[in-house]
Design a protein around this nucleic acid. Structure first.
Lengths: 146, 146
DNA sequence: GTTGACTTGTTCAATATTGAACCATATATT
DNA sequence: AATATATGGTTCAATATTGAACAAGTCAAC
């Protein structure tokens, strides 16, 4: 085999492919009609609870406001989130999880379970934990040097 | 801050964000009209040389054949690749890099240079190399357990 | 040789995303 | 108070991608 690529490029290449495969697997496993983006939003609310504005969600997921508008409209159409105007600030809206949304998230989690278990049989928590600091640093750099 | 997520999920989350930021940065840096997908194909030919069929390119980039058709059509429209029928197998086509394509790739590389240099100032080659084995293993697992 | 299964490449509708324009509202400056 | 600037959210056209259907070519088995 010819000379390998530079390690920085190789890292970014592997990361790109992993992200692609991971996202594709996620979408394939999820119940019909639930995209990875939607699942991410539901997951966010399950972890954090409370209400968030669309703009803050867009920032959290590194997505444009337009994309978040789309995702939230689809979630609302399915009854998974409630969207209401913000009393204190007329520009904002407040998005929150509904009971149906929490149930949909649970169903999504269950659907993912076999895959996640397979992953955790293939690698140990220690391996993931060991990889994390570098990945976080890389993410932070990418974020700052946008 | 509340309890962290499980390390496996965190790893996949970070990888997803890095890939997104990295791809966005790539597209922003590249000369107008050249997408990351197109740059990837040019890069492939520069490294490997010779000719490849669209199907093999699609497999190499983990993309559907339809997506590759699109990318190749755009590359051909700009004169960056030549596409001809395969003599030996009437179903296949042979894609190869043109001189203009090689020059376009060089221009893309130059445009990326400042960003890549910044990255290599922020991290050492050793750090990238250290991260690589785990990423490769993870990629391989994702690839097998599709 | 014919048939049947597989491979290759293209097309098409559906979906997600971006970037820009835009309107409404809030905040700061004067 | 009036004006300017910034922020929040939506819409729109453009683009990339997927998955499915399809036509054309190959190949093996019979």
């Amino acid at each position: 085999m010819a000379a390998r690529s530079r390690p920085d490029i190789e890292v970014l290449t592997e990361i790109g492919i992993i992200a692609q495969l991971s996202n594709a697997a996620l979408e394939r496993s999820l119940p019909a009609g639930m995209s990875a983006a939607q699942f991410g939003v539901l997951s966010h609310f399950t972890r954090r609870g409370g209400a968030e504005s669309p703009a803050r969600l867009a920032a959290a997921f590194q997505v444009t406001k337009g994309a978040m508008t789309n995702t939230l409209q689809r979630l609302e159409a399915q009854g998974f989130v409630a969207i209401e105007g913000d009393e204190a600030d007329g520009r904002k809206k407040r998005v929150s999880l509904t009971l149906a949304g929490a149930q949909a998230y649970e169903a999504g989690l269950q659907a993912l379970r076999p895959r996640m278990e397979g992953l955790r049989e293939a690698f140990t928590d220690a391996e993931f934990a060991a990889a994390l600091p570098f990945l976080k640093a890389l993410r932070a750099w990418m974020d700052e040097n946008r």
